Amino acid sequence: MIRHTLLAGVTAGAMALSFPLAAQQVPDDLTTMPEVPEGYTPATTPWGDPDFRGIWPLNDVAELPVNRPAQYGDRFWKTPEEIASEQGRVEQLEEAYEAEDEDGTIGLGHWIEYQAGSRRTSMVVSSQDGQLPDFTEEGIHRSSLMRASWVTGQTFDWVTDFDSWDRCITRGFPASMFPFRYNNGIRIFQSPGYVVIALEMLGTRIIPVAGQGEEWPAGVDGYFGNSRGRWVDGNTLEVVTDHIKPGASVLNVATRGVPSGNTIPMSESASVTERFHMVGPDTITYEMHYSDPVVWEDDFTLRYNWSRDDDYEFFEYACHEGNVQVRNYITADRTKREQEYARGAMVDEIDPDAGPPPAMDPASRGTQNRNTQGD
């Protein structure tokens, strides 16, 4: 599932101005971010827990970036005029969908369509500039050693030259809790003592609540980590996760506004605190606080809304089926280097029996743009 397509479409009925104002919570001062409202009391399950069961696809926030684009300055919110200017694009794309339907040529437009029009300018709410903090020196170093199909200029000799997402293992955590361009479905199941979050793309989280979970012993980790949940104020699920297995990028490059390369590192010190606030019958405000002092100069918090859509249907994410791209990348890259050697452009001949060791120091090429996070 390498070199993921980044085209997208927009459904016209999804403009933010059609969202309930309470869900958007747009203040008069667009440079301020209000607190999450706490007044809503959700229904309860038969055993008495707040009832979060349902389907919560992330399509309506697929255009919301993590880092704020410079055009919005220090504003957390777009102006009404900026939202209105998006309507032309929405209508144009809807016409394209109709043409696909009429011609019987349904393709990428429908495959990865999403809803757009959020009034928010970024997911980052922990800083006025709407930007993720900088890496520490150690974070820069660890990023330079990560490898992925998204990294420009690196070579490919073995499966370890690809990240866990390239290899259909996992998007990682907390990356899996943020939108991509397709397969954005999230479904919540509950049973006494547990909340289960089923992800349409690669994975399921099982979260013990009400004291059911125990912290894992030292040396034990997992890509989704060790999560323990508790109910707060009758409308919020708070989940603390540690023991997260390093390796996958903390945030995926295909989530808008994330630094390039899919090479955001994680140390063993990383911890995540999530708060799932039910703020209305069909809205959850998801808030994620991330801490990893080895990699980042400061903690940060991301926040965005989930919208219920129980008519949404999960599509099979058959990432492993026909995933020939890992071999294709290796074969094509070795062939390219053999041709460069034949032309005298390379000093060292390519060993046709080369195994897992990379053919070059991963910090020597393709990392010059990763000394900082980038845009």
Rank of each mutant, 00 (worst) to 15 (best):
residue 224 F to W: 05
residue 357 P to H: 07
residue 254 A to Y: 14
residue 26 V to D: 10
residue 106 I to T: 11
residue 310 D to R: 02
residue 129 D to H: 05
residue 343 R to Y: 13
residue 332 A to C: 08
residue 1 M to L: 12
residue 16 A to N: 08
residue 141 H to Y: 13
residue 219 G to L: 07
residue 220 V to L: 10
residue 212 Q to H: 12
residue 356 P to Q: 15
residue 289 H to G: 07
residue 201 M to W: 07
residue 364 S to K: 10
residue 15 M to Y: 03
residue 310 D to I: 04
residue 217 P to W: 01
residue 29 D to S: 01
residue 37 P to I: 04
residue 94 E to D: 12
residue 160 T to R: 10
residue 301 T to K: 08
residue 196 V to E: 09
residue 104 G to V: 07
residue 348 D to T: 14
residue 169 I to P: 00
residue 47 W to Y: 07
residue 227 S to C: 00
residue 259 P to R: 04
residue 61 V to R: 02
residue 221 D to P: 04
residue 144 S to D: 11
residue 102 E to V: 13
residue 88 G to K: 02
residue 264 I to T: 15
residue 252 N to I: 07
residue 32 T to W: 04
residue 123 M to C: 09
residue 65 P to H: 02
residue 360 M to R: 15
residue 102 E to G: 02
residue 56 W to I: 06
residue 58 L to H: 01
residue 271 S to H: 13
residue 168 C to W: 03
residue 181 R to A: 05
residue 356 P to G: 15
residue 21 L to S: 15
residue 300 F to D: 08
residue 190 Q to D: 03
residue 215 E to N: 12
residue 77 W to H: 10
residue 264 I to Q: 15
residue 153 G to N: 09
residue 210 A to R: 10
residue 146 M to G: 07
residue 220 V to K: 13
residue 286 Y to C: 01
residue 60 D to E: 11
residue 108 L to V: 10
residue 103 D to E: 13
residue 351 D to K: 05
residue 203 G to S: 02
residue 11 T to D: 10
residue 100 E to N: 04
residue 361 D to E: 09
residue 233 D to N: 12
residue 370 R to L: 14
residue 357 P to L: 08
residue 237 L to R: 01
residue 361 D to G: 07
residue 214 E to T: 12
residue 350 I to G: 08
residue 363 A to P: 00
residue 242 D to A: 03
residue 15 M to Q: 11
residue 171 R to T: 02
residue 103 D to L: 14
residue 219 G to F: 06
residue 327 R to D: 15
